[in-house]
Amino acid sequence: MPRIAALDYHSQRRKRGLAVMSILSILVVLMFIVSMNTGYIRLTPMELLNTLLGRGTDKQELILLQFRLPRIVISVLIGAALAVSGAVMQGVFRNDLADPGILGINAGAGLMVMLLISFYPTASAAPAYVLPLMAFVGAGATAILIYALSYKRHEGIKPIRLLLTGVAVASGISAAMIVLTLRLDPDKYQFVATWLAGSIWGTSWKYVLSLLPWVVILLPYVIYKARVMNVLNLGEQTATGLGAHVPGEQFRLLAAAVGLAAASVAVSGGIGFVGLVGPHLARRLVGPKAQLMLPVSALLGALLVITADTVGRRIMQPSEIPTGIVVAVIGAPYFLYLLARTKA
């Protein structure tokens, strides 16, 4: 009897997971359509369809295909990437507060952007294509530095040491940024602050192409590793006992998470909240099993960022609210509601 009950439970979970996934997918597609139609210049649904089929005017094509579409695609990609990255970090560190920023990715990228901006006479003089590259370099270098600092001979890496080292390095970088902040002139400061708050500003296909390989390779890789993540969740000793090569698996998963987050941060700035909250939301919707939780996290992250980006473009036209701010304003209340409603 208990065995049947257990089977029942699992099939229920799977059914619920599939239902949640299909609902989320539909919502993402809906938001995609709404978002294409949101902006300073309104397009009717028919114009939208015609333009997509290649029968629009030049102006419509320019707006839709060159400005809006790449931005929307980017928001979907980074939402999914950041949420999955956060899920991996929370799983490997086994800490609820872990997010992609925990390995210093946001701080490193932010510092690089700030340094770069402070070298140019005005904020707009900095070449736009160098910024994401430098942000990526800063993010990756910080993650590597943190990893190297917490490596010890004979025992390698321990998650708790990595976590504390990450926090320390990130706050050191933040301190350096505060000192720099006070010396920037107001215009540059405004630019950096907008960047740090998280706004999708890489709005061309070039950025989509630079982001796509990371997401296309690493996202399936992490989901493929779902079983390993389940085992790691049981604790290091149990995982080792079950035959997992724990340090190696941890390293591979973390490397994937860093790659996903660094690529996203480079084009979007500090939208860290998705990585913190996406996985928690997913866990509360479909349970802790990684095979369900990871795809649901990805979908939720994508939905959250695309919604936030759309809302941010809509509310205060023609100026925009940074997406990161809208993400937190939408995501936090929903998360708090779920937190209060569901049992731990």
Partner: peptide, 15 residues
């Protein structure tokens, strides 16, 4: 979560 919300709002006001 709540800190993130308040921080985001403050950032918005500041910007």
């Amino acid at each position: 979560a709540f800190s993130a919300l308040l921080t985001a709002l403050s950032e918005g006001i500041a910007l």
